[in-house]
Design a protein around this nucleic acid. Structure first.
Length: 302
DNA sequence: CAGGGTCAAGAATTA
DNA sequence: TAATTCTTGACCCTG
């Protein structure tokens, strides 16, 4: 079991997602931003190793405009040695890695250009993982997309789109249940049609489900992962008290987290904490996992 | 220099 | 058909 937080470290004085406006695009600006971002990514990974946080979601913004036509620079080749070095560090420390293309990646959109843009974005993010030399357990997580008033048709379009993806992207693609449109059951159906694993989000499942108890839901999602995919990846969060339903909590509530863990029933998972204060929650969560024996005690610093 | 409007990209809801 | 919400950080313009 590994645990982590997404993209941003609030302790370190750097960002791995510096960007700039499209209007101010230039090759110099791009090189500067990517250089900064990759240097910071390395620092974050080192911080995480020190704290035993070995599941990490890399920012979608490592390369600004990574899939935009304005970006004709061969950043893949220019930064290949840096990607290789970071990848070596990731493998040396046995990190689990994910990326999460955002809401603009919609494989089942009825708009052809939206689908094409989605393919480009997936290709961009997959290239980063490929350049790092990561195996197929490093995943790209996306949601089902829109429903457009006809979910069965939307699911078929999604499945058709997955089939025409290049093999390297398809091998990394996983679908995550969301909190308003595509439930775990819908995602399992997409898995049946495409073979892609289902990344389980406990909080989304609480918001939208078909009656599956948490423990059963975890088992159903876990069954969609093949050995080469690695163990089940999941997103963990809980409701922010007093806020709109679906709003993520700002700091981890350890009693709720502890209660959630009882539903695992021995299932091994990697847990991404989608909680606002990032490592400030991940560190105490990790301490709890050690206390409960889910992960070994910290190794002495050599 | 701080505050705040705005930013590549979408979908669903509401007006 | 058009505006707003979702959701989020940070760029970068304005005063």
């Amino acid at each position: 079991m590994k645990i982590g937080y997404p993209c941003i470290n609030e302790t370190l004085p750097c960002s791995s997602a510096t960007t700039f406006r499209l209007a101010s695009y230039s090759e110099e600006r791009l090189i500067q931003a990517v250089t900064t971002n990759l240097a910071c990514l390395q620092q974050i990974l080192e911080f995480n190793v020190q704290h035993g946080l070995l599941f990490f979601r890399m920012s979608s913004d490592l390369v600004p405009f990574g899939s935009h036509p304005v970006n004709t620079f061969n950043w893949q080749e220019y930064f290949a040695p840096t990607f290789t070095a970071i990848g070596a560090y990731i493998k040396q420390n046995k990190f689990r890695i994910s990326m999460h293309p955002d809401q603009f990646v919609v494989l089942n959109s009825p708009t052809e250009t939206t689908v094409q843009n989605s393919f480009s974005e997936l290709a961009y993010q997959c290239t980063i993982m490929d350049l790092m030399g990561l195996d197929k357990s490093a995943k790209l997580q996306i949601h089902g997309g829109g429903v457009y008033g006809d979910k069965p048709a939307a699911i078929r379009r999604f499945a058709d789109a997955v089939q025409v993806l290049p093999a390297n992207i398809r091998a990394r693609l996983v679908i995550e249940n969301d909190d308003r449109s595509y439930s775990l059951r819908d995602c399992l159906e997409i898995h049946e049609l495409t073979g892609i694993p289902v990344l389980f989000d406990n909080f989304h499942h609480e918001c939208l489900n078909n009656g599956e108890p948490m423990g059963e839901a975890l088992q159903l999602a876990a069954q969609t992962w093949q050995p080469e995919d690695g163990i089940l990846m999941m997103d963990y969060s809980s409701q922010s008290p007093g806020d709109r339903k679906g709003k993520h909590i700002s700091h981890i509530q350890l009693d709720l987290f502890r209660e959630f863990l009882t539903h695992l029933n021995g299932l091994d998972v990697d847990i991404m904490l989608e909680i606002k204060d990032k490592e400030a929650s991940a560190i105490p969560a990790m301490a709890l996992l050690r206390e409960l024996g889910y992960v070994p005690a910290a190794e002495p610093v050599s």
